[in-house]
Computed example of a mutant assay.
Amino acid sequence: MRTAREAALVSRFSAYGAAVEIGIGRRPTVAAALADAGVTVTATDVVDRRESDGVEIPSSVSFVCDDVVAASERADPGAAYHADLVYGLNLPPELHRPTLRVARAVDADFLFTTLGYDAPTVPCASESIAGGETLYVARERS
């Protein structure tokens, strides 16, 4: 069952044809729902979630074990990151700048949420969404 927050994120992100979730962690719900809505979704994480106990990445979501910090330092971040949207949910501050660099490199929008008490470390606009969540828009193509 999706929460109001998850439904709002899926609604906001479903306009994109392809999306990459940075640091999917143990919560693949939004990525799975986006894939169900017809978005091509790739999830990344530094931990191989396919082998992690108790976490199942749905087959509708591609998974790539990669470090967004390392990807941000490459001339081309890698095929996994070539999408219309790069997003992170509960993205820690130390990943804001590297993820923005990746989004710029692949000419993608970059939207993210924080844990709530973290302030964004990159310039961005904010949107209030259902569930009391703030969605930060760090890069949006015209």
Rank of each mutant, 00 (worst) to 15 (best):
A32P: 00
V137L: 13
E51M: 07
E133W: 02
I24A: 08
V122C: 00
V30E: 10
R50S: 12
Y87I: 05
E51L: 15
Y117P: 00
P98H: 04
V55I: 15
A18Q: 13
L135E: 05
T113N: 03
P93L: 08
Y87S: 02
V41C: 13
A8C: 03
S60Q: 06
E127L: 14
Y81K: 00
T44Y: 10
S126G: 05
S11T: 08
E21W: 05
C65L: 00
T134M: 03
D66R: 09
A71W: 13
G23N: 12
P93D: 07
P92H: 09
T121H: 06
D109L: 02
S52A: 15
T40A: 11
F13M: 03
F63Y: 13
P123Q: 10
A8Y: 13
T44M: 11
E127T: 02
R74Q: 15
E73N: 01
R139N: 11
A108L: 06
D67E: 15
A138C: 10
T3M: 14
T40F: 05
V55C: 03
S59M: 02
T99V: 09
A75L: 11
Y81P: 13
G131L: 12
V137T: 00
S60I: 10
C65S: 13
A19W: 00
P98R: 07
E6Y: 03
R49D: 07
M1W: 02
T99I: 04
A103D: 05
V102D: 01
D107V: 06
H96Q: 08
R49G: 01
P92Q: 06
T44L: 14
V64R: 03
I57V: 14
A19C: 01
A37M: 10
V47K: 09
T134C: 00
H96K: 04
G116D: 14
I24M: 12
V64F: 09
D67Y: 15
L111Y: 06
L91N: 04
D67F: 13
S52N: 12
L111K: 03
T114N: 11
V39R: 02
M1F: 12
D76G: 01
D76A: 06
H82P: 03
G23R: 01
P77D: 08
A71R: 11
F110L: 08
